[in-house]
Design a binder for these strands. Structure first.
Length: 863
RNA sequence: GGGCGCGUAGCUCAGUGGGAGAGCGCUCGCUUCACACGCGAGAAGUCGCUGGUUCAAUCCCAGCCGUGCCCACCA
């Protein structure tokens, strides 16, 4: 026997995660359980972590996402796969550069441009070594079974090589190009942003209607950005707009300047909006830029990169917001403002990193031509090579990928992958690969790449690409990607673009599992400004990593947001304690995992084994659909309601009798299996208990349970169902009669099977009827078991009558419902036979129930 | 404007064409020999509204009301 009753009996009654977790984790790592082995001969199961920012701390969303990934990985390992969960971090170009700038400002009192590029990058690496990567330690706290030997960073040498290699390939294939276009510019961070790095917010602004020109040739335009009029080079109207036909081709005087600008016709203009006339500022508005291109308009830039007016004149040197105010004032003085709508609600773009209002700006940048790449990315999902779970979120993927616009990838930053393009003294440009040397005298492009460019390579760059490594051959395509639906556009789409392109059409992952956002207890998004952000580490400290993981997984319905608060974590912690005590009981009781299971287990033993194997099958089925919340629910209720509340109570009886050895073995089997089933979700407490219970090396490497349908035992299940029904009914009677739970009562039981009666007596504390037995109360349960009790006192007739009356009312309702159904010809004619039969059964049951209750009522003494 | 979703017990959420569920909370009782982070019993919902399909609708369809998110546009 490997159970250790002597040790177990000294276990405290409560689990102390803080003492147990860290040593267990270190042991797992030291023993190499998490290290993948492509030579193992086992089938591969691989996934890459969505790399957290090097500057980030573990937040509740990470905790959820990583709990999901860890559960999948641990289960796969137990099922015999060679598992690789690859960890790492993202360099977070703009985010980290901003932090480093702030840090340098605080510590050295200098700005970015007080350093050379090389100095600044050196400072950034120093910052990264000193302050970055704290999340890695936090992942250990959570219990993440990642392969630390394969940890990667998006700026490490191999990944930088991958970036340069794919850039050159794209450049050579003419899928990367340089062009002057309107981009989103952050005047604070001084860099271009991609469309998705801009957050739009509805704001109260003003809509000013301005009269351009005078007399015969005048036209009213409306704008929310009066200051951009300094860059106007036309006024546009719709070509079919009756009101303005006579003006098309004319020139109007642009107020506050001595310029005259043409009135042009363009389809883009919506004649129903405002006056139907639009001022055109090609260098400062994306739509105006397109109009400008169509009509070959001049495109003067009127602001510098910080948003300060540079157009010559009285407004030069003013910030764009100051200029707006001054220009509106000047126009008003001139009598040119014909209408002002204030407040005027409209959408304004902000830098997603620093919240500064972005400035559309004409600028020379590098772009990825996405059309063919996006087509391939869409096809891979349409033809099922990549499955999105839940499927209901696939339209979001298509919505994005089917309308993808060229991706601006250059950033005017220093922290990141520098664009591998060099310029000759004559201004020619050429891209060079990692093993190529540009000619002397050529200078490299100053810009770095969008952070997401390197993230897009993550599923293969981390495995060694462009080298043809064993890891790459073994683990690509990765099995599954787990990430939030909010990151579908930023990251998933881009991995699809580049994965299919770089890996000869092979998808980066076979399944995308999308989770939702973790919100606060009332369903509100967590944010610093709301002050409702929770720190998972504080909860780990207070309740243990398992409790945090379980509480998050209990809410993890596919693709759906979830609300969480501390109460949930407390509940999960309580479950861990319950499990702890169940295992403690098993060990105290001499449960064992040695030897074969009994060939013919007795009632409760047979029943719980039958249920156990149903649960295994159910859990397997749910894992295939990534239904973490339901897996947690099934195991929670099986463990608590069935194993603890019924099986252990029934086993206590058997442990005193002849069947004790069988029960000890079954009890061991049930706990062993339950702990293995729970291990992927709550690794620490299951490890502590499983090793103590079984004496095995580690549950991490224990085999995943296999469902065995031959364990099904309908007879045993029926017996236990009868016990549960009778016990529950009599307990209710006892409770309503005010009998103390501990009070033993003599009773005569008739109608109960031999397999049922002893359990009923024990669980209800009913003694054998002795010689002096005088029944004073009798109840017939729904299972046709009659129990006569000698209460040696008066029973509460009124309470009992009320209880029975209530039951009778419920049965009457049931009777009426089913009688009505059976009286309905259409129902009898059209409903399936099975449904009709079920209704007949229920009708009969209701009739029997009423008869039983009436008999019980009649047997009650009159008050 | 386009797309997706939600509205079920006080709260947070599952769920199904044929008997309304869970966790927490609430009420009552309990130092019952694993566990008070526990045990037992219990109360609690016109399944948003209206109409339709069906023998049968919380579930399918339409409309409405409320609510959330994503994309595009917003001169």
């Amino acid at each position: 026997m490997t159970g250790k009753p002597s040790a177990a009996s000294t276990l405290p009654s409560q689990y102390s995660p803080a003492e147990v977790e860290a040593p267990l984790y270190e042991r797992w790592v030291e023993r190499g359980y998490f290290t993948a082995d492509p030579d193992s001969g086992k089938p591969p199961f691989s996934l890459v972590i969505p790399p957290p920012n090097v500057s980030g701390a573990l937040h509740i969303g990470h905790a959820l996402e990583q709990s999901m990934m860890d559960a999948l990985t641990r289960r796969a390992r137990m099922r015999g796969f060679d598992t690789l969960w690859l960890p790492g971090m993202d360099h977070a170009s703009i985010g980290v550069q901003t932090l480093v700038e702030r840090y340098l400002s605080e510590t050295e009192g200098k700005g970015r441009f007080d350093y050379t590029r090389e100095e600044f990058i050196g400072k950034s690496w120093e910052w990264k070594e000193r302050y970055g990567g704290q999340i890695l330690g936090q992942m250990r706290r959570l219990g993440d079974g990642v392969d630390w030997s394969r940890e990667r960073f998006t700026m490490d040498e191999g990944l930088s090589t991958a970036v340069q290699t794919i850039f050159k390939k794209l450049y050579d294939d003419e899928l990367i190009y340089r062009a002057e276009r309107i981009i989103n510019w952050c005047p604070r961070d001084l860099t271009a942003l991609s469309d998705i790095e801009v957050d739009h917010a509805e704001e109260q602004g003003e809509l000013i209607s301005i009269r351009y020109g005078d007399g015969e040739v005048s036209i009213v335009v409306a704008t929310t950005r009066a200051e951009t009029m300094l860059g106007d080079t036309a006024v546009a109207v719709h070509p079919n707009d009756e009101r303005y036909q006579h003006l098309i081709g004319a020139e109007v005087a642009l107020p506050l300047t001595n310029r005259r600008i043409p009135i042009i016709a363009d389809e883009h203009v919506d004649p129903t909006f405002g006056t139907g006339a639009v001022k055109v500022t090609p260098a400062h508005d994306p739509n105006d830029f397109e109009i400008g291109r169509r009509h070959d308009l001049p495109m003067p830039t009127i602001m510098d990169e910080r948003g300060v007016i540079i157009a010559p004149g009285p407004y030069a040197g003013l910030d764009r917001m100051e200029a707006r105010y001054s220009i509106v004032a000047a126009l008003r003085e001139d009598g040119r403002i014909v209408a002002e709508k204030r407040p005027y609600q409209h959408s304004v773009g902000h830098c997603s990193k620093c919240d500064t209002v972005v400035e559309p700006r004409l600028s020379l940048q590098w772009w990825v031509r996405v059309e063919t790449l996006a087509k391939a990315a869409a096809d891979a999902v349409r033809d099922g090579r990549v499955v999105i779970e839940p499927a209901s979120l696939a339209p979001r993927y298509f919505q994005w990928v089917d309308s993808l616009r060229d991706w601006c990838i250059s950033r005017q930053l220093w922290w990141g992958h520098r664009i591998p393009v060099w310029y000759s003294p004559d201004g020619d440009d050429m891209c060079f690969g990692p093993d190529e040397t540009p000619p002397a005298g050529w200078t490299q492009d100053e810009d770095v790449l969008d952070t997401w460019f390197s993230s897009a390579l993550w599923p293969f760059s981390t495995l060694g690409w462009p080298e043809d490594t064993k890891d790459l051959r073994t683990y690509y395509p990765t099995t599954v990607l787990v990430t939030g639906y909010d990151i579908l556009f930023f990251w998933v789409v881009r991995m699809m673009l580049f994965g299919l392109y770089a890996m000869a059409g092979e998808v980066p992952f076979k399944t995308v599992v999308l989770h939702g956002l973790v919100r606060d207890s009332s369903g509100k998004k967590m944010s610093k400004s709301r002050g409702n952000v929770v720190d998972p580490l504080l909860w780990i400290d207070a309740y243990g990593a398992d409790a945090v993981r379980l509480s998050l997984l209990q809410g993890a319905n596919p693709g759906a947001d979830q609300a969480i608060n501390e109460e949930w974590v407390v509940g999960a912690r309580n479950f861990c304690t319950k499990l702890w005590n169940a295992a403690r009981f098993a060990m105290i009781s001499g449960a064992t995992v040695d030897g074969p299971l009994p060939a013919t287990p007795a009632g409760a033993d047979a029943w719980i084994l039958s249920r156990l194997h149903e649960v295994i099958a159910e859990v397997d089925r749910l894992y295939e659909r990534y239904e973490f919340a339901k897996i947690a629910d099934v195991l929670y209720h099986f463990a608590w309601d069935e194993v603890c509340d019924w099986y252990i109570e029934l086993a206590k009886l058997a442990l005193g009798g002849r069947a004790a050895p069988d029960t000890r073995r079954v009890l061991g089997e049930v706990l062993d299996t339950l702990l293995r089933l729970l291990h992927p979700m709550i690794p620490f407490v299951t490890e502590a208990l499983w090793t103590a219970l079984t004496g095995g090396e580690s549950v991490v490497i224990a085999p995943w349970p296999a469902a065995d349908s031959s364990r099904a035992d309908a007879g045993a299940a029926a017996d236990v169902a009868a016990i549960q029904a009778v016990v529950t009914e009599v307990r209710r009677f006892r409770s309503e009669q005010g009998l103390k739970p501990a009070q033993r009562v003599p009773a005569r039981i008739t109608g109960a099977a031999a397999t049922v009666e002893p359990a009923v007596r024990a669980l209800l504390r009913l003694d054998e009827a002795g010689d002096a037995f005088t029944p004073t109360a009798s109840l017939t349960t729904s299972r046709a078991v009659t129990i006569e009790l000698d209460l040696s006192g008066t029973i509460d007739v009124a309470a009992e009558r009320a209880r029975l009356a209530k039951d009778r009312a419920a049965a009457e309702k049931e009777l009426a419902t089913n009688t009505a159904k059976l009286g309905n010809e259409a129902f009898l004619g059209k409903a399936p036979e099975a449904v009709v039969g079920k209704v007949r059964d229920r009708l009969a049951a209701a009739e029997a129930e009423i008869a039983r209750i009436d008999a019980a009522l009649a047997a009650l003494p009159h008050a």
